[in-house]
Amino acid sequence: MTAGASYHGQPVIKAPVWTWQIPWYFFTGGVAGASAGLGYLCELRGDDALARRAWAAAMAGICVSPALLIADLGRPQRFLNMLRMFKVTSPMSVGTWILQGSAASTAIAAAHAWFGLFPRLARVAAPAAALLGLPLSTYTAALVTNTAVPVWHEARRTLPFVFGAGAGLSAGAAALIGADPATAAPARRLALGGAAMELATTTLMHRGLGEHGRPYSQGRCKHFDQAASGFLAVGSALLAARGSRSRTAAAAGGVLLLAGAVSTRWSVFAAGRQSAADPHAVIDPQRAGIARGERIGGARTEPVARDAAAPAGPAS
């Protein structure tokens, strides 16, 4: 670590003010989104038992998610202000609308799967929920990477895949808990495949981050990251070995995988706080970009003779 200049060691950027609700929402939003897809595909396949389990998980996720988000607001009673506009430059705005659509369509699809209600509406709502569930699972990565926090912003090409994989494994794992192993093969494949993808994409993200990824080897972030790897490895092994025969093993494996997905989201959240708190995480890469000649930076030492007609800019 280079020890360049900073202002009394003070952070350059502000750490996110988001609290515990947000990493949990990363998880519940993923459960809701991918479970809707799982439910719809199981219906297509004629696997109604598994479909009902998946729609229940989707419904649970989609009910908890808005509550978490509203609770995190500084002025919860003003949550409706989110609906004043639709703004592509704000993934939070886009996500608000995705969540609205997901909630409405998932509620109808789940009511149909469980109670046979709204049969005609559900024909549209179920595929809509399944489709909206996909961006619902990954837009949260766009949200955190669209910030000045180096460990998030520099992971903008990989973090959505980590969140997507985590959503898939969460949906599979949630559907496994309490299910009859004989009929839960698709959920098991989804859980195992998702867990493998989450481990792989997380490793890719850490490698791609390079020096920006320092938080993942320090402090709380490191502990969450190690816990995630452990939960995913043990859960996957248990599921692969006994998950197709034992209901208990499948449930235990599912719980372990869910814990893994939660831990990954907490490690990403903690990484952002640690990265923002470290002035050198912000300054050093910017300084290095200037030194390499790739960036001109914000400062200029040579004066420019300006007159009203001349455009602003450095002298040639």
Binding site: V12, I13, A34, H153, F161, Q286, G297
Partner: peptide, 30 residues
């Protein structure tokens, strides 16, 4: 940076294209 100012501040929204492209690709992969 001596004054606590970033030497090369960048508006994150400049990378919005790659941010949404990756989120979209990850949604398709899911």
């Amino acid at each position: 940076e001596v004054y606590g100012l970033p030497p090369d501040p960048v508006d994150t929204v400049r990378d919005l294209g790659s941010i949404w492209a990756a989120a979209g690709a990850a949604a398709l992969a899911l």
